[in-house]
Design a protein around this nucleic acid. Structure first.
Lengths: 168, 168
DNA sequence: TGAATATACTAGGACATCCAACGGTTTGGC
DNA sequence: GCCAAACCGTTGGATGTCCTAGTATATTCA
């Protein structure tokens, strides 16, 4: 990372776009690039907070999802859909979480194709503790003003709906 | 990626946060999660557009950066700083771009420690063509309204400055 | 019943990122 | 000048993600 730059590289890129014949898409380019960089910064903070718990963000998301599941268990396919990741990524994450004793696989009672995943006691405990860490170390001071938080939720919500994430 | 969900999973997560004792950080959690998901969607679009050119986003960024360099070349360290990635990632990207004949390494004339990277003719051509593709396939219809684009640039700019990306 | 569909696992590959450690180079205090 | 410290790029190893394809099994529907 190193020291801060003296100029905003994204603002520079926008200027380059404007001066090289693409003024009409310069602003959207800058916005999209800013989303990329922001995600990178946030992910680094989250991963740093989760590291002491032996979790990555992907695995934490699965843990958190399970901790909120009504019945305490979830089909893998459902987890894949809710977290918007490839089924093999779920398999991969469950493999590691299971090896760590945090979740367990069990057969679906009526549908022999699907396997259910549920938290172990240790998994439930770790979900609670790691969530507390994220709340206090990341979410409590996100780097956005409260008004900007609301704006982001609205703008990105519109975007995600528009992109086909959900129909609501 | 499958059919749209009937409910917004991030809104559900926010409700879960509010109902499980963390109402004060529920909104920032939702905003940050939305940034994550938005980045994922945008990155997928960008990668799909770049794939026919044999480029990834990381490699495209380096190509674009070089195409705007005043002198046509850039020290690796400088590229690392401007793109906000670790030096080893630049080495990795340059290795692949060099193998593809798109950039070339050359020694710095006065400082023997640093190596310069510059575009080849083919690299410059590909940078131009892939930028045109991104402009027409992604940036021209980003999924944000023009007003939201401005909002995003402002909000995320504040965030990045606050995070120490640049001092401006 | 038979054909199409759905779920999950496996294996393999392509990438990006981070870390620690290493040579070669330059810089700056003495 | 000299030598220690700092700097630059690279290497090798480890993690982790995503994707494609193929397989096995189970379910659904014509």
């Amino acid at each position: 990372m190193g020291t801060p730059l003296s100029r905003d590289p994204i603002a520079d890129a926008r200027r380059n776009w404007e001066e090289h014949g693409w003024p009409d898409v310069a602003a959207p380019m800058a916005a999209i690039t800013a989303v990329m960089r922001t995600q990178q910064i946030l992910l680094a903070r989250i991963e740093a907070t989760l590291k002491p718990f032996g979790l990555t963000f992907a695995r934490y998301e699965l843990l958190a999802l399970l901790s909120f599941a009504r019945k305490g268990s979830l089909p893998m396919k459902k987890a894949s859909a809710l977290l918007q990741v490839h089924p093999t990524s779920i398999t991969n994450a469950v493999d590691r979480l299971e090896r760590a004793g945090l979740v367990a696989r069990s057969p679906h009672p009526t549908d022999g194709r699907t396997t259910l995943i549920e938290l172990t006691g240790e998994g439930r405990s770790l979900a609670k503790r790691s969530t507390a860490a994220l709340n206090s170390e990341v979410f409590s001071d996100p780097g956005f003003s409260p008004g900007d938080v609301d704006q982001l939720i609205r703008i990105l919500g519109d975007f995600r709906r528009n992109a086909g994430d959900f129909a609501d």
